[in-house]
Structure formats: C-alpha cells, structure tokens
C-alpha cells in the first residue's frame, strides 16, 4: 500500500481500536496507539502472511511480544481478513470469548501466546534459527515495548540472536518512553539503547515511528542488512493521535469516558482529514 493510503487507514484502525476497547470495557490504549504504525506497515507492506498462507512453512513469522497491545493487533488482523471486526467488538473480553486481553494462538493468524513480557524475542530466535537451519528464506519479526526490555530474558534473546548471526530476524522496540509508573528513564533507564543492541551484535536503525514512511523504509532496509539481526528503535508517542492521551503515562490502560471518547474520535477524524 502506498504511504498516504496507509496513513488514512491508520486513523480508521485507531478508531476500531477505540471501539474495541469501549466494547470490552478495558484495554491498553496508550501502547496500542504507539504500536499502530509499525504493526500496520509490517502487515500491509512486508509480511507475506495472509489468511490463505497461515500454514505455509515459508510464511514470515510475527510474534507480538508486547502482548497487552492486542487491541491494535485485533484491528489489523481483522483488516487483513483473519478476524471479523464486528465479532471482535461484540465479544472482546466477554465471558467465554476467544478475544482475550493478550494474543492467543487459537485465533487464526496468531503464532504464539504472549502477555508475560520478555518472551517474544527469544521465541523468535528459535523461529529464525529454524529458518536458517532449513535454508528457508522467511523472515521473523517481533515488536517489544520499551518498558518490556527491562526483562532479562530480552537480553538472553538478544545475545543469542547476535551469536547466531540471525539476519533473518528483525525486532522493533516501540520506544514511546513511558511505562505504567512513568518515564522509562526514571523507572529503569535503557539509554544508550542503540549502543546496547549494537554491543550485542545487532544492526540498529532508529526512526520516528509516528511516521509510517520512515517505518516502511526501515523494514525495507532491514531486509538488506546481512550478517546480524536488525533492531528498529521506533521513537513513538504513547497515546498517539489525540491530545488528551499523548505522552501521558496514565493512559497506559485508561478506559475513556463518554466525553473523552468523543474528543478522541473527533481527533482521529481530524487527523485523517489532514492526511
């Protein structure tokens, strides 16, 4: 998809995310908004996964490591034909629903269960290693939150990915700078993050993750980088898209009230009109 089309779609899907959260009575809206662009451009322009190829051994693999941003994942999976959006809205978080608050691989298109942080990258190391050993050319992707990378298991995975020179692996850090208790740098600092990944044997790309075009170019470039895995540090805005949410840690899992819903909806519509 071309960039303008993706940008317009991103605002429609943000509205879907908002509606899913309102219907379910909860969700992680702040991180959903910072994740949206990376996940959208990945699914629309880079992953070779479709509802018809979910069992194909040569398909690309994606694991959403920051599993709490599942509402964005559902909206994109629905837009790509894996899920029925109306069914998601009707049943998200409801009694007996398959649409729970974290990814579950009983749903079509979802490879692995997540929710507990720090699992996606090491699992993707295994997936990428299988591809290398089998001589297959599929690529493996994961998206982590920046608060998440305080988990030690992330760095066990980073160490192994560098050791095995997994250039078929691309990780994204959704670097929105906030976690539930406040600034990531106050809670447990990660800078210099690029140097940390580089020292573990990774190619490092940094982009403004609020700009779809920059993400699109970074994913394309990552495919050309050989000999090492690539991390895209995607500098984003938590709660991106509405002034009442942006850069506010309190919106990590805040449920909008009726008034806030209308403000956010209007903001999304205005931003779409400005594309």
């Amino acid at each position: 998809m071309d960039i303008k089309e993706l940008e317009r779609k991103s605002w429609d899907l943000r509205q879907d995310v908002l509606d899913i959260i309102m219907a379910g009575g909860g969700g992680h809206i702040g991180g959903d908004m910072s994740l949206m662009n990376a996940l959208l451009v990945l699914y629309k322009n880079h992953l070779n996964i479709t509802p018809e190829t979910v069992e194909d051994p040569n398909r690309d693999r994606f694991v959403l490591s920051k599993g709490h941003s599942v509402e964005t994942y559902y909206a994109i999976l629905a837009d790509c034909g894996f899920l029925d959006l109306e069914d998601v809205k009707a049943r998200f978080s409801k009694f007996g629903s398959p649409y729970i608050g974290h990814p579950n691989n009983k749903l079509p298109g979802i490879e692995m269960n997540s929710g507990s942080l720090g699992h996606g990258l090491p699992v993707c190391v295994g997936m990428a290693l299988a591809g290398k050993r089998d001589g297959k050319d599929y690529r493996v992707y994961t998206i982590m939150g920046d608060g998440e990378i305080a988990e030690g298991s992330v760095w066990e995975g980073a160490m192994a990915a560098g050791h095995f020179k997994l250039d078929n692996l691309c990780a994204v850090v959704d670097r929105n700078g906030l976690q539930i208790s406040g600034s990531t740098e106050d809670v447990m600092h990660h800078e210099p993050l690029a140097d940390r990944f580089a020292s573990f044997g990774w190619h490092v790309l940094e982009v403004n993750g609020d700009k779809i075009e920059e993400l699109d170019q970074a994913f394309a470039k990552a495919k050309t980088l050989k000999g090492k895995p690539t991390v895209i540090i995607s500098h984003t805005t938590k709660g991106y898209g509405s002034s009442i949410m942006e850069n506010k840690a309190g919106w990590h899992h805040h449920l909008p009230n009726a008034e806030e819903y209308e403000i956010i909806k209007a903001d999304f519509a205005a931003r779409k009109a400005g594309v």
Binding site: E111, V123, V125, G126, S153
Partner: peptide, 21 residues
C-alpha cells in the same frame, strides 16, 4: 543448539523451533 547458561532462552528458543516444525 547450544544456548549457553541461559535456561529461559533454552526453553523459549526450543518453543520457537517447535513452532517451525
């Protein structure tokens, strides 16, 4: 596959391999 002294990695990498057959 040798993962070094990293049991969390051991099990997660095993799961990733298994997810790929």
């Amino acid at each position: 596959v040798e993962v070094g002294i990293a049991e969390q990695n051991l099990v997660s990498i095993a799961a990733g391999l298994a997810a790929c057959g």
